[in-house]
Amino acid sequence: MTRLPSLTIPRWLLVPAALGALLVAVPVVAMALTVDWREFGPLVTSEASTDALWLSLRTASVSTLLCLLFGIPLAVVLARTTGAAATLLRSLVLLPLVLPPVVGGIALLQAFGRRGLLGDTLDVLGLEIAFSTTAVVIAQTFVAMPFLVLSLEGALRAAGTRFEDVAATLGAGPTTVFRRVTLPLALPGLVAGTVLAFARCLGEFGATITFAGSLQGTTRTLPLEIYLQREGDPQAAVALSLVLVGVAVLVIALTRARRDSLVAGAT
Results as ranks from 00 to 15, higher is better:
A197N: 05
L122C: 00
V24T: 13
P10G: 03
V245K: 04
L196E: 01
A264E: 09
L215V: 15
V177K: 08
D123F: 00
V245Q: 02
R90V: 10
I129Y: 05
R157L: 10
S132L: 00
I9Q: 07
L122W: 08
D233S: 13
T182V: 11
F112W: 01
R114C: 03
V243C: 10
S46A: 15
D51T: 14
E164T: 02
L65Y: 10
I226E: 04
G104A: 09
T221C: 13
L122E: 00
A21V: 10
T176K: 09
A168T: 11
C201H: 06
G193S: 07
T141C: 14
A84M: 14
A236P: 13
D123W: 05
L53R: 06
T59H: 10
R230M: 15
P146R: 14
G265D: 05
L23S: 14
A207E: 00
A167S: 01
T161Y: 03
V195G: 03
T182F: 07
R38Q: 13
L262Q: 08
G20W: 00
A248C: 14
E225V: 08
A84C: 12
F211V: 00
G193Q: 01
A130G: 00
L152S: 10
D51L: 14
G189P: 08
V149S: 13
R90A: 15
G71I: 08
A17L: 06
V93R: 10
V181D: 06
L127T: 02
V103A: 07
L4V: 02
D165Q: 13
D260W: 01
L69P: 06
V251Y: 05
V124Y: 07
T2H: 12
A186S: 08
I138H: 06
V24F: 08
L156Q: 11
S63M: 07
A79Q: 03
A159L: 04
I209C: 03
V44F: 08
V103I: 01
T219V: 13
V26L: 15
V76E: 07
D260F: 11
V35M: 07
A135N: 07
A48K: 15
A168Q: 06
C67W: 07
A239H: 10
T59Y: 09
G154T: 12
T169W: 01
L254R: 09
T208D: 02
P73R: 10
P174I: 06
A144D: 11
R58D: 14
V77E: 14
T176G: 03
D120P: 00
L108V: 01
I252Y: 04
A159K: 04
A192M: 00
D123C: 05
G83W: 09
Q229S: 15
F112H: 01
T267M: 08
A111R: 06
E153V: 11
G217V: 09
G126Y: 00
L170R: 06
A168S: 09
P96Q: 09
P100V: 02
L108G: 07
P184L: 12
E153N: 13
L13C: 09
G104N: 05
G119V: 06
G41Y: 12
T133C: 03
S91D: 14
G193H: 06
E47Y: 13
A25L: 15
V76P: 07
L244R: 05
L14R: 11
G71Y: 09
A48F: 13
L185I: 04
T50Y: 11
T218L: 15
L92E: 04
